[in-house]
Design a protein around this nucleic acid. Structure first.
Length: 321
RNA sequence: GGCGUCGUGGCCGAGUGGCUAGGCAGGGGCCUGCAAAGCCCCCUACUCCGGUUCGAAUCCGGACGACGCCU
């Protein structure tokens, strides 16, 4: 890594202990924590998303947790912009920004920023979305092939979500996605980072997921779902697409048993963790340091903190080279 | 001991002579503003042994196993 890192990054699949580790490291290096998690960002989903609780947030300042209303739009771009602000603020306090989370895509929007997106007309955008939703996937592909012929070299199988994105840009900006990605300048400088990736064997992870699921239910997940419903966020709401919420909803309404709910939630969480592992295997910078998720968080935290101090002590190379 | 039913991949489960069922579980992979999302690929089995047939998971015989009923 050529530049001195500005942020300390902790990545890993869900339920590997990122929260505890980040808190411990923050204590050691006088840091503040930024959550790179697409779901913990929402208010009212703290239990089901295993967001850092009061025991963490009271001792260490956290950013990016429980600050959005369910239903608000979040995304990699918005995360990255907000995150840059938090990083600057933390630095201005003379503290260390620690970015921890499981949403690898968000993290990458920070270390490898996306292009600066033009204003998209909200009205045209939503009517296009509605049209897309009504079309069979073959039709979506026909249009992406026509409007963005090079897309398929990067996306062998165009799915509805990405096809929609490609068409949105092509139709609303007059330039297709391939053009934007190739020619539009990134919206910010890459954020130099020292990245740690937690790894864990399947058996242990499975076990942790199941234990955590039961703990979440004991901690009042049912109440959380009922509160969401009372606030107008029923099973159809975007917030409820987070893992487990549908099952807890059905558990609350007596449709399924507690054990059935646990089994389904564990399965879905496991699938998610697998996707995360695949992502982390291939999409993370080569200079990331991969370590086993330890039972003893403290020792690893010491290692990470020592490494950070070593990097921070090096004289900063001249900027702009 | 006799009679009957059945024996399909890790599990569930269709298939009654030729043409990869399917689902679940498991594994691998993709990824530039929905990422806890969206999507792709892999896992080709018929209990065993004979026989019939150009060809058998599918028909016939036997063995073994499971279940049920009877003695």
């Amino acid at each position: 890594m050529s530049l001195r890192p500005r942020i300390l990054v902790i990545l890993g699949p869900t339920a590997t202990g990122k929260t505890g580790l980040a808190t411990e490291v923050a204590r050691l290096v006088d840091g503040e924590i930024i959550s790179a998690d697409s779901r913990q960002a929402y208010r009212g989903l703290e239990i089901g998303t295993a967001a850092p609780g009061p025991e963490h947030r009271l001792s260490i300042p956290h950013h990016g947790v429980a600050f959005l209303e369910p239903g608000e739009r979040y995304g990699a771009g918005r995360f990255a912009r907000m995150c840059r602000g938090w990083v600057s603020d933390i630095e201005s306090r003379g503290r260390v920004p620690i970015v921890a989370g499981g949403t690898g895509f968000f993290m990458r929007a920070l270390t490898r920023p996306v292009f600066r997106e033009p204003e998209l007309d909200a009205g045209r955008r939503s009517s296009l979305e509605a049209w897309l939703a009504s079309q069979p996937i073959a039709e979506v592909r026909r249009w992406t092939d026509r409007l963005d012929p090079d897309l398929r070299s990067r996306l062998p199988v165009v799915d509805r979500q990405r096809g929609g994105r490609a068409l949105e840009l092509a139709l609303l900006t007059g330039r297709n996605l391939t053009w934007w990605q190739g020619h539009a300048p990134p919206e910010a400088e890459p954020m130099p980072a020292r990245t740690w990736v937690l790894e864990i064997d399947a058996e242990t992870l499975r076990q942790r997921i199941e234990e955590r699921t039961r703990r979440q239910l004991d901690a009042g997940w049912l109440d959380e779902v009922e509160a969401l419903a009372a606030g107008g966020h029923g099973p159809g709401s975007p917030a409820m697409t987070s893992i487990g919420y549908r099952e807890v909803w059905r558990l609350a309404s007596g449709e399924i048993s507690r054990e059935a709910a646990v089994a389904a939630i564990v399965r879905d969480t496991w699938r998610y963790a697998r996707r995360q592992r695949t992502w982390l295997r291939h999409q993370v910078a080569d200079d990331a340091i991969r370590v086993d998720a330890p039972e003893d968080v403290r020792a690893l935290a010491e290692t990470i903190a020592a490494d950070w101090r070593r990097l921070a002590d090096r004289s900063e190379p001249p900027r702009g080279l």
